[in-house]
Simulated assay, not measured.
Amino acid sequence: MTVLRYAAFTRDPAAGNPAGVVLAPQAPGADGGPGALTDAGMLAIAADVGYSETAFLTRVADGYAVRYFSPQAEVPFCGHATIASAVAVAERDGVGPLLFHTAAGDIPVVTARDADGQLTATLTSVPPTVAEVSDADLAEVLAALGWSPADLDGTLPPRVGYAGAHHLLLAAGTRDRLARLDYDFDRLRDLMLRRDWTTVKLVWRASETEFHVRDAFPVGGVVEDPATGASAAALGGYLRALGLVAPPVRLSVHQGEDLGRPGHLTVDIPEGTGGIRVTGNAVAMP
């Protein structure tokens, strides 16, 4: 099958977060994988592509069945690969509403063209949740990162956010602290595997609605994810649940700058308890 390559949350193929996209024409295989692809086959393709995630889409009656694989494991949901996949479908079939059936639940997606005529996609996450993080786990994360409690922003308490996958949300007190990321890969990965955290999302709040973020992703076999839609949705749910924003509100989230792959995510937080909307461009890579 042909693997398409897109950069998500950017209009520049050299920026944003690369994702593999496989549009499978066949019905699901015996194990639920696209067409004739087995789980092992999808994992092998994702490892060969080498991006943080590759999405595998199979057409079904009301949308697409979608599975996501990092180079090392399947993940229940991936935001940037969803944005990339939706734009790939829009390029083939035109813009409009889509429904992605994922392991985390059904994800409505709408594709459109922005004011400049560029394709965008907006996903709506599953309803988010927020949980406490234990003192022992927080101490272990800080040790793995080489951070101290004094490096944290006390106005944004550590929590585990969920909007399709679990992410530890940790706020840096300064932009400089966020920029200096050099962690113990194995130590952080081992804790994340024990706790089922997909990323550790490090954030710095530049203003009421503007954030700079980084996502450590050792469980996916990469040091850092350049632009992370699933954790952006989790961040939106976290801010709403803790009363740190006044919904409805739109956030501007910058990610990838410290990697040399800048990306931009727009996060819309509605009132109530429903899903968080994450919007971005995507562009085919050569």
Rank of each mutant, 00 (worst) to 15 (best):
Y6D: 02
R180I: 09
A179K: 02
E208M: 02
G16Q: 05
V21Y: 04
V253K: 03
T58D: 04
E74M: 09
E208A: 15
A112M: 03
P128W: 13
M285D: 08
C78G: 03
T82F: 07
P28R: 01
A179C: 03
D225F: 08
V223G: 05
V87F: 10
P128M: 13
T58R: 00
L4K: 02
V22I: 06
Y64Q: 07
G63E: 07
E132V: 11
V3Y: 04
A14Y: 14
T54F: 07
T228P: 00
T209E: 13
V95D: 15
I83G: 05
A19N: 07
P28I: 09
F217S: 06
H254G: 03
A139I: 03
A233N: 05
A233Y: 10
L156Q: 07
L123G: 01
S85V: 01
H101E: 09
L259H: 05
L4S: 06
R250I: 11
R205E: 11
D106C: 02
T120H: 04
A14W: 13
A230P: 00
V222M: 07
A104M: 03
I276C: 12
G35E: 03
T10N: 09
R67M: 08
L188F: 06
D39P: 03
A131L: 06
F56T: 07
A232C: 11
P218Q: 12
V249E: 11
R250F: 04
F69I: 00
H212Y: 13
E140I: 00
T102R: 01
H254M: 05
R177N: 06
